[in-house]
Amino acid sequence: MLLLLRKDLFILRYYFLLVLLYVYLFGFLLFNNTSFIFVAALSAIMLMTISANLDSKNKSMIVIASLPVSSKSIVQAKYAAVLLFALIGIFVSVLVYILNSLIVGREMAYASSYVPIILLIIACYASLYYPIYYWLGFRASQVVSIITVSIPLVFIVTLSSAITDILSFSAAVNAAFLAASCLLLIVSYRLSIFFLERKGLA
């Protein structure tokens, strides 16, 4: 599975520049109170979608499926990549905070309560995206991704206009967010495996 994760990072290496461009736009130029959530969640979603796009383009999934790994490991690696991309997203948002504070000189605070809501947004997206990807294929998942991306986007935009201070939730709410994220990913993983068992990878 680690080799599959490594493969994802390897094929994405040029596309990290695209993410940086996006981070510059939303993390610096169009900065607001929800930029940290925006940057972290959408960076991860972007990486997830590009990775799936690259696998589907030219049907590269056939090459992956012919490698000495089980089909289950391929699905497991996709879900492990969700967590990896989430970590990258969170890291990038912390970087945006540091650069904004130290270089741009904006006065702000990075709340740890951002992390659960970032994970929830990413989990919501992944939990819809991957089962549809394994069930109906890449094209259907792309259509769904437009819809599912727009949901967190609307949510974050609404949030940014509604709040003027640091977004903060109680510990119980944060725990609920984390639990919901885990549950969504587990159910989604089971569904993806179910479709894989019925249809195969390509």
Partner: peptide, 29 residues
Amino acid sequence: EAEIKQQIGFVSDECHYYEHLSIQSMKNI
């Protein structure tokens, strides 16, 4: 599945490698 595929060389009908990579990069994967 995984053990069996260690011993199989597979060539598909079309090229399904990542087009944006070089041969060396694909080999590294």
